[in-house]
Amino acid sequence: MGRRLIGYAPGAYDLFHVGHLNLLRRARARCDYLIAGVVSDDQLERVRGRRPVVPLAERLEIVSHLDVVDEAYAETLADKLETWAALRFDVFFKGSDWQGTPKGLELERRFAEVGVDVVYVPYTLHTSSTKLRRALAVLGGEVAARGDAAVERAGS
């Protein structure tokens, strides 16, 4: 029996949606064992300038129960090579929105040094956590505006 191919697919997995599921399904189809790296709240705040809507423990719980994920891992290190040193995966999966970018090219270069292939999976264009976050902000503003109007009516 041959050696099993271990894949690693990191992400925030905040406001979990079909794009996340698509990434994980496509990654799982290309490896024997899939580890989903769930990026910590602190790392997301450092990189993106904001904390996730859903806390790490809950995101880990959601991702760990997907049938395409063999293991959910709390990613707390900024350097992906340090994560590789801890997990020793063979393939690193990333959304195609990274392909050809300076960050993606640097990732490819660094992983090539340790024999890890970077595989880009198609990015789901019609949905994203950013779009969901914007929709929630709009809805939050509408709810707040309706609440303010109700307060004004009650006060008159």
Score class of each variant (00 low, 15 high):
K103G: 09
R26Y: 08
K131T: 13
G37A: 00
N22V: 12
Y8R: 02
P10C: 01
V68A: 09
H17P: 07
L81G: 09
A27W: 08
E71Y: 14
L44N: 10
L44E: 08
R133V: 00
N22Q: 15
H65K: 14
R48D: 12
E106T: 10
F92T: 04
R25T: 13
L87D: 06
L107Q: 15
R146A: 15
D97C: 05
R28D: 00
D148C: 10
Y13W: 06
L34E: 03
D42N: 10
L139H: 13
S64M: 07
R46T: 11
D70C: 01
G7R: 06
H17R: 04
D32M: 02
S129W: 05
L34I: 01
E61P: 10
V116Y: 03
A57D: 15
F89S: 07
G49V: 06
E58H: 13
G2V: 13
E58M: 13
A36L: 01
L107K: 10
L87T: 02
L15P: 00
E142M: 12
I62L: 15
Y13S: 05
L105A: 12
L136S: 06
G19M: 02
R3C: 10
G37S: 05
V138P: 04
R3W: 11
V63C: 02
H20I: 05
T130E: 08
L21C: 06
V143H: 10
V38Y: 03
T76R: 14
T76E: 15
A29M: 13
L21W: 05
E61K: 14
R146Q: 15
F111C: 02
S129M: 04
L23A: 11
I35M: 01
L132A: 06
G140V: 03
P122R: 05
R59T: 06
F92K: 01
L87M: 06
I6R: 14
L105E: 15
H17N: 02
D14Q: 05
G104L: 04
G2I: 12
V38S: 04
V114S: 10
F111A: 08
A74W: 00
L15R: 01
V54E: 02
I62Q: 08
A149H: 11
V118A: 07
P10R: 07
T101V: 09
A72M: 03
D90V: 00
E82A: 13
A12F: 08
A74M: 06
G141H: 05
G115I: 01
P55N: 07
R133P: 07
G11H: 03
D32I: 04
L34Y: 03
L105R: 15
T130S: 15
L87H: 02
Y123A: 06
R146E: 14
L77D: 13
D70A: 08
L66A: 09
Y33P: 09
R133C: 04
Y8D: 06
P122M: 02
S64C: 09
A137H: 10
G37M: 04
G104Q: 02
R26P: 09
L60T: 09
G140A: 04
Y8E: 04
L139Q: 13
A78N: 11
I6W: 00
A149E: 14
A135Y: 12
G115R: 02
G140E: 07
R59M: 05
